[in-house]
């Protein structure tokens, strides 16, 4: 099948995703990832902490863990779709960063993404493919923030490449 033999144009791929996102907007709401990841965090934490998790006000007031939260399944679907794509195109292989500096950068980057999502209540997907197309004021604030952050991150990345 041609789809699994050559790389698809990102413009075509994102145009198709955008059309599907419009349908999703009609049915349940626009594409988002951060909310589902937060719910997964709560569910994983409950697995370790049991009912004592509800003593942390955030998980009691703002985000009570609920496995029936539809946004979780977007992320699980993306993982499934990527596995299918990678296996059928013979691109699946276990890879890992080799340098300690890469592990450090990924760890700090992951932590900042998690903190940023919860602080803003949105992630980059909601910013670009939800809030801004809905012309939500938050979309413009979020785009300004992510552009400034990406610029700082790029500067750090460049310095690390030079160093």
């Amino acid at each position: 099948m041609a789809l699994f033999k050559k790389t698809l144009s990102p413009v075509s791929a994102m145009a198709m995703i955008a059309v599907l996102d419009i349908f999703l907007f009609q049915i349940v709401g626009s594409w988002t990832v951060g909310g589902g990841e937060t719910m997964m965090t709560g569910l994983i934490a409950r697995l370790f902490m049991g009912e004592s998790l509800s003593r942390i006000p955030f998980w009691n007031v703002a985000f009570p863990p609920d496995p029936g939260y539809w946004k979780i399944y977007i992320s699980l679907g993306m993982l499934f779709g990527a596995v299918v794509g990678a296996v059928l195109s013979k691109e699946f292989s276990w890879r890992m960063p080799h340098r300690l500096s890469e592990w450090v950068m990924i760890t700090i980057g992951g932590l900042l993404m998690g903190i940023g999502i919860r602080l803003a209540f949105v992630c980059n997907v909601s910013t670009f493919y939800g809030l801004t197309p809905e012309m939500n004021l938050g979309g413009y604030l979020a785009i300004s923030g992510i552009l400034a952050g990406a610029w700082v991150g790029t500067w750090i990345y460049k310095k690390s490449l030079e160093g």
């Binding site: 700090i108 980057g109 903190i115 940023g116 602080l119 209540f121 785009i143 991150g153």
Partner: peptide, 16 residues
């Protein structure tokens, strides 16, 4: 918080 959160997120995604 929307600006500040995405600012942190922007740094994080490039580092990660």
């Amino acid at each position: 918080n929307t600006f500040a959160g995405l600012f942190l997120f922007g740094i994080g995604m490039v580092l990660a």
